[in-house]
Design a protein around this nucleic acid. Structure first.
Lengths: 169, 169
DNA sequence: GCTGAAATCACACATTA
DNA sequence: TAATGTGTGATTTCAGC
């Protein structure tokens, strides 16, 4: 059952800052939002505990590391029973190459974003994971030539007075 | 011109750890990879400076914040000149709702991942940004009903001895 | 919101391979 | 000689008031 957590202007400004850089000392953040350093720290801790901030991580650019190739996979299943869909999702959850997996409306079932080193690695992946799955009726690849935008942050409006937020779990 | 940066076992283990949590003290990390604390810190700093770690951020779950709706947009442009494509990409770069934007091969030009509060907000977005753009010939929406996987980390093989890596810029 | 103790970060230098 | 480990001061976190 989702709890409610109110985000005021200060919280939203903090979130905007932390989503760009979570390594800056709380003292510096405190100055930017015009509160004291301990208050700043306390608010950030509450945001983490409430689950508004789900994780604090280092981002590694796949393209900088030889994972130079990106592929989209549109997949249709043979058997769409809840059991088989859960099985497919669990499988994708385990495969490191699968960066994103969505169950979608329309003419196919799943949309995958796959990161691989090169075309050969992609071919190996498709043979092993997709056509080797046993429950894939049809699939089609689509190749992004350029990733023009990849945002990990949500822009919070800093003007609004207060925002009610549904926090899961 | 891409520089080369060698990643040994220790670097890769550090990257695996930091991609899960970048708030743990360097001392703890150092123990886990069996090096001293200052060495650990130095290696992390080098990974940041080399651009292997592109950013350190707090992650906010969109679904936890009322951005409960996700949409895919498949967009075809009228004018595919370099100038018009750059203009489109710049526009998408500025729009907060657009989380991802790819230039793709196939029967349409751009694939967008859009985060909005609800269907009405999505309608407003489409009217303002897409059909109001002047250079969109055709577009189609597709609605993900479930985000089964969204990975921000790359799994590094910790067994291999050393890996050469192309670092951009 | 303020102050102080505990912990962490980050540097200079010695050491080793 | 280049990279790691040791010791030490400056910052930062975080509890009590």
């Amino acid at each position: 059952m989702p709890k409610l957590h109110a985000l005021d202007r200060v919280d939203r400004k903090l979130l905007n800052l932390l989503q760009k850089d979570n390594q800056t000392p709380t003292r510096t953040l405190a100055e930017k939002v015009h509160i004291s350093q301990p208050t700043c720290l306390r608010r950030i801790r509450e945001l983490r505990e409430a689950g508004v901030i789900s994780a604090d991580v280092a981002l590694v650019d796949p393209f900088a590391l030889g994972y130079g190739m990106l592929a989209f996979l549109e997949v249709s299943l043979n058997n769409q029973s809840d059991e088989h869909m859960q099985e497919f999702e669990a499988r994708m959850g385990k495969e490191a190459e699968v960066m994103q997996c969505y169950f979608v409306s329309g003419d196919y079932d799943y949309f995958l974003v796959v990161h691989v080193i090169d075309m050969d690695a992609y071919y190996q992946f498709v043979r092993r994971v997709i056509s080797g799955s046993g429950n894939v009726r049809h699939f089609q690849s689509r190749f992004p030539m350029k990733r023009a935008k990849f945002a990990t942050r949500i822009a919070f409006d800093e003007k609004q007075a207060e925002v009610q937020v549904r926090v899961p779990k």
